[in-house]
């Protein structure tokens, strides 16, 4: 079973590489945000998978945190773009 988890994880990492390229290449700011956001979601699943690879279910708690963090960061970035300020 763990081989399958491993393969999935590797596929996710490869996807992350592609997204990283997009984040760097742009061309607009929104592409960067989009790509980073997507990497964020990938990491959430990735954490869960790691939990299964190493047999520790506590990792799922962390997936929740990841989800929240990515969300809030994205909101902050958007607010900055829309309003030009954070407060």
């Amino acid at each position: 079973m763990s081989t399958i988890y491993l393969i999935t994880a590797v596929v996710l990492i490869v996807g992350a590489f592609m997204l990283l390229y997009r984040a760097l290449a742009g061309p607009t700011v929104y592409d960067t945000i989009l790509a980073t956001n997507a990497i964020g979601t990938k990491t959430i699943v990735f954490v869960t998978l790691l939990g299964y690879i190493s047999g520790r279910t506590e990792f799922i708690d962390m997936a929740i945190i990841y989800a929240l963090i990515t969300f809030i960061t994205t909101i902050a970035i958007l607010k900055y773009i829309e309003k030009g300020r954070l407060d």
């Binding site: 964020g40 990491t43 945190i65």
Partner: peptide, 28 residues
């Protein structure tokens, strides 16, 4: 700006590295 966003990504990835090394608290 891109640099800052990438810093966020960097940290998430780093957190993954640490999960992978079984350091849950640090990763958290």
């Amino acid at each position: 700006y891109a640099s800052s966003i990438l810093t966020g990504i960097y940290s998430l990835l780093m957190a993954l590295v640490w999960v992978n090394m079984h350091s849950m608290d640090v990763s958290f």
